[in-house]
Design a protein around this nucleic acid. Structure first.
Lengths: 340, 340
DNA sequence: GTTAGCACTCTCTGGCGGAGAGTGCTAACC
DNA sequence: GGTTAGCACTCTCCGCCAGAGAGTGCTAAC
């Protein structure tokens, strides 16, 4: 990729800025007129032709203005962006909504706030399962044949599931069993908890084989299996964008956003990143998302990235504003969670 | 409303049947041709004019065919419908997906199955909160200052929330407190659990005032507050319907379906109904839903209606097939839940 | 009561022409 | 050499029109 310098670079920036606001192809005269450029439209035209040659611009049809390519958005985001600060009024408002006593709900609130503020679909993934450690595991006896098993991880997520005893079991037996399982499972990262390991734990208490199976299922399905940890909000916002006025374009995107596995896949990469990550158009692996950008950021609990949140919108989006918002929400959510 | 008899009634039925399949206005010639009617198109025209006069048909524009009104769908559903049976292969397939060990997930699976089978948006509301009784309430000590409170209702729903102690509390104290609260709250319908009642319970244990506040919040916000109990699936299916090819028509519907309070409101009435309820077009109170029909049915756990599930689709939908499916899924979900 | 026939109305489609927007190219200019 | 004015060219968009097609309501005859 060729480095852009001086005026040419400025012109590209103007075109992207204008296109983001208007969603209309930008012509040479519009560039010269709206911004006080000391050159004629013919000169701008020459530059624009060069920018097209370099792969930064494209024409929807031969005599229309130009629109930015994914590559243009890429340099725009990487080196032309003025990240907008979130207004202090909005900061305060958002912080208040995050003051809820539970991780899941705080994440949900953050997702919602993001959807409202950006007019995009907003997504979040909860704690990355493989780094989690089960801190507590309790069996709560309900009837002689039923109990509720509750597991709490180090990131304060808890999950429960009903388990059934084959034989009647007293509350005391249940307590004992609870402690027994707890002793072997807690403090150990869930990523270690392969089926084999679980079998070993189970082997020593064959009487409660079935209960242990069920506990294992809880851990695997509800805590390890990450899809249940995805939040999505504001997908209908996608329809407000002019590029998705055509239902046939919008439908695949909305369908994809309904699938937790796809959302999880979109966000997964963001966890490794230190800060805000921007995936533009075809940079997203998913075919359905080739007209969309995904902006995501991990949120931290203590030192480790507990999860990711972000937005999905058209590639033509207000990157400056939205990156600022995603960054702020990731930080705020982290702050809120750290208060636990 | 005038009773419809004989041929006129048959013609209306044909028009509705055809329109449901084609989504195109139906003309007199089409009615005569597709079904072997022993009369000419002129006669059909006379009948159609009468049906329009009576409010059953309308013309999108003066020289188009006719389409059914909400009123037409109403008599269609009430008295012309052959409810389609769900194929035994599909019955088996759906029953398998519902065999999960937990109410919430069974409801989720049922909603998903419904969305896939009907190509409509599918919604469900969990157990009606006011009829619920808390059966078990446990405090699980995590640290000296934190515990997880878990409540289990008679419909096997459980919810948890973190609570904080102002002063360090031992596991034994925590257990004692747990039993104390449990004794006073369990077995009592949640609808009795007004703020005043809660205060009375709390009054006797002022030391743990704050914990009790938090327990109260759990019960009110998570179990009483029904919005968290709404599932929605397949909203993007709405976009597949030709009547929603125009984004401006689809957007309000999708936005409404994203709001849990609206979905809950749509379903609420269905709980009282003994069986399948069909709300057609403007029969729905919500302005956004005037182009949609909602078909819902309560599912039973034992003798009492535990929740409602159903679909939202265009008024032009295959009522026969979908009513059959909703009925079957409500029954199957009830069966699945009764096995607990 | 039913039907054939017909005039009427409306939509839909394709073609056409002009306006408008934007371009690339060329030649002149600094 | 970079810049610019001018111009021909291309393409979309819009309104217009005409013809085809669909469907109707009305009338008069059966």
């Amino acid at each position: 990729m060729v480095e852009l310098e001086g005026r040419r670079r400025e012109i590209l920036r103007m075109i992207i800025d204008d296109y983001i606001l208007t969603a209309e192809p930008i012509g040479s005269e519009a560039v010269r007129g709206r911004h006080r450029l000391g050159v004629s439209s013919a000169t701008v035209r020459n530059e624009m032709a060069a920018l097209e040659e370099l792969g930064y611009l494209q024409q929807p049809h031969p005599s229309a203005g130009r629109i930015p390519t994914d590559q243009a958005y890429r340099v725009y985001v990487d080196s032309m962006l003025e990240e907008e600060q979130v207004s202090s009024a909005e900061r305060a408002r958002i912080r208040r909504t995050l003051a809820v006593p539970e991780l899941d709900r705080a994440v949900e609130q953050a997702t919602r706030a993001l959807a409202v503020a950006t007019d995009c679909a907003s997504v979040a993934a909860g704690p990355s399962p493989h780094q989690q450690v089960v801190r507590h595991l309790h069996l709560i006896p309900l009837t002689p044949h039923r109990a509720l098993v509750v597991a709490v991880t180090d990131t304060e997520v808890f999950k429960g599931q009903m388990v059934e005893f084959q034989e009647a079991t007293t509350a005391e037996e249940c307590d004992r069993l609870s402690q027994e399982i707890s002793r072997r499972i807690t403090g150990r990262p869930l990523s270690d908890l392969t089926d084999r390991m679980l079998d070993k734990v189970i082997g020593e208490a064959t009487l409660y084989q079935r209960v242990l199976d069920q506990v294992g299922r809880l851990l695997r399905d509800q805590i390890l299996h990450p899809s249940a940890r995805v939040h999505t909000e504001g997908t209908a916002n996608i329809l407000k964008q002019p590029e998705f006025r055509d239902v046939r374009r919008a439908q695949p995107v909305l369908s994809a956003l309904e699938r937790e596995d796809i959302v999880e896949e979109l966000l997964r990469g963001g966890l490794g990143q230190k800060r805000v990550r921007v995936m533009i158009g075809a940079e997203n692996r998913r075919e359905e998302m080739r007209d969309c950008s995904v902006i995501s950021a991990p949120y931290y609990v203590g030192e480790h990235a507990a999860g990711v949140l972000g937005i999905v919108g058209p590639t033509r989006m207000r990157y400056g504003k939205i990156i600022g918002l995603v960054r702020f929400l990731a930080e705020s959510l982290g702050d809120a969670l750290n208060q636990f």
